[in-house]
Computed example of a mutant assay.
Amino acid sequence: MTLLIAVFLALVLFFGQRKLFDKNWKRKLHVSLAFGEQGVYPGELCTLKQIIQNKKRMPLPALQVKFQADKSLQFQDETEAVVTDHYYRSEVFMVGGRKQITRTLPFRPQCRGKYSIGQIQIAAQDFFMSKKYVAVLPENTMIYVYPRQLSMKQLLNHNKQVLGEIVERRSYQEDPFYFRGIRPYQPYDPMKYINWKASAKYGELLVNSFESTYSRDVCLLSDVETDSVFYRQEMQEAAISVASTLADYYLRKGARVSFRTNGREDTDEEIVLEQCQGITAITALNRRLAGIDLAKDSADFARMIRQIIPNCRQSRQYVCITTRPVRDILEAVTLLQSKAAEVLLIVPQIAGEEVQIPAGALVWNI
C-alpha cells in the first residue's frame, strides 16, 4: 500500500511539474542580445551582451541559448562555440526564479560591413529532464564596422594641397594644425596660445602663431569596381577605405563634403550625400559605406562622372578615386577637369598588384 501511494505521489509530482512547465516555462522569460557599440573600426575591441531575465518565481534548471553571428567578428571566447561558415554559440544556463544572468562576450571585427543577429533559439527542460521545450525569439541587434582607416602621410608627402587645405595668411581664422612661429603677446590673444617656455627664456610674453586656412567644398567620387583578378576584394575595400579616410580628414578640417559612389547598399539604394559638414557627418557617411554590398553589380563609374558634369561647380574640388584608371574613366575625368577648377585623380595600389598610373594621378600605396 505504501509503495502504491509513493508511486501515485511520484506520478502526481511528475505530471504536475510537466503541466506547470507546459504553461509557464516561457512566461516572463526574456532573452536578448545587444552589441555594446553601434559603430566601430576593424580591429577595435567590442562587446556583445547576452541577457537572460526570468521574472517569474519558477526556476529553469536547464535553459539552452543558441545564436549565430558572422565569423569575421572573431569572438575571443570559443569554449561554448563552433566556428565554421558562421560563429555558432550554444550555452546552457541554470536560471533561478526572479533572476537575471548577463554574459559579456568580447570580440574584434576584422572586416567592413553591417552585421546583425536576427534570432535567438532557446530550449528548456523540466525538473525531471523528461521534456524539451523549444522556441525561436526574434532579435534585432546590429553593429556597423566602418571602413579601415589609412595613413595620410604617404599622400601628404606627394602633395600637401591634395586635401584642399590651402594655407592663406590673409584669412581671419587661424588653424592650430599649421604652426607658423612665435610673436609678442597682444591684449586680444587667448591665454591658451601663450608659449610659457619661450616667454621665460626671453623675458616677455610670447604667443604661438599659426597659419590661416579656409576649408573647401569637396566632392568625393568613389569607384568600387576593379579589374583585378587575384586581389579583387582587397582592391575594392582599398577604394572604400580611401574614400572614408579622405572624408574623415576633410570633415574634421571643417570642409563641406559631398559623396557619391557606384557601389550599392544591401537595399540596392544608391549612396549619394550632399553638403555634409561636421563630426557627426563622419558617422553618417561611414555607416553608408559599411553597408556597401560588393556582391551587387556596381554602376558605370565613367557614366557617373559624366552625369555630374552639367551641374559641376567651379568652387568645388572633385576627387575621383578608382583602382582601375582605364580609358573611359580617364576620358570622363579629363572632361570634368575641363569644366571644374580642381579635379584630382587618386589611384589606390596594394602590394602585389601593379596598376598603370596615368600622368597627373596620385598613388596611394595601401
Rank of each mutant, 00 (worst) to 15 (best):
L221R: 02
L29S: 08
I122D: 02
T280Q: 14
Y88K: 02
Q173C: 09
M94E: 13
I329Y: 03
F128G: 03
E168C: 07
K28D: 15
Y188D: 13
Q74N: 14
L273A: 11
L73N: 06
V12F: 13
R112Q: 05
P42L: 06
L344Y: 13
P176Q: 04
Q50Y: 04
Q314K: 14
F8L: 15
I166G: 00
M142C: 13
V83P: 08
R327D: 10
L289I: 00
H86D: 10
L29V: 02
P325E: 02
Y185V: 06
R148T: 10
C46F: 01
T104V: 15
E234K: 07
R103Q: 08
L206K: 07
I366W: 13
F21P: 03
K192D: 13
R264P: 02
A239T: 14
A361G: 07
L13K: 00
K19T: 09
V326Y: 09
C312V: 10
P59H: 09
D227V: 10
I309P: 05
P176L: 12
L335F: 07
V82R: 14
Y193F: 11
L60V: 06
V363Y: 00
V347E: 02
V272W: 08
S116G: 08
Q161V: 12
K23M: 07
F179M: 06
F230P: 01
E225W: 07
E80P: 02
A6M: 12
K153R: 14
V224S: 03
L345G: 07
N311W: 11
F93S: 00
V83D: 07
A198S: 08
K131D: 03
F15H: 08
D70F: 04
G118K: 02
N286G: 03
I329N: 00
V242M: 06
G118H: 05
I194Y: 09
R256L: 11
D223W: 00
R216L: 13
S209M: 01
G118N: 08
H86K: 14
L63V: 04
E354T: 13
I166D: 11
V95I: 15
S258K: 00
D293M: 01
K253Q: 15
A295H: 13
R324T: 15
K253V: 03
E225R: 10
M142E: 15
Q317K: 04
R148I: 02
A290S: 15
L220E: 00
L335Q: 15
E211Q: 11
L285R: 01
T79D: 14
L344C: 13
S244C: 11
V224Y: 03
F230Y: 11
V218K: 05
V145H: 01
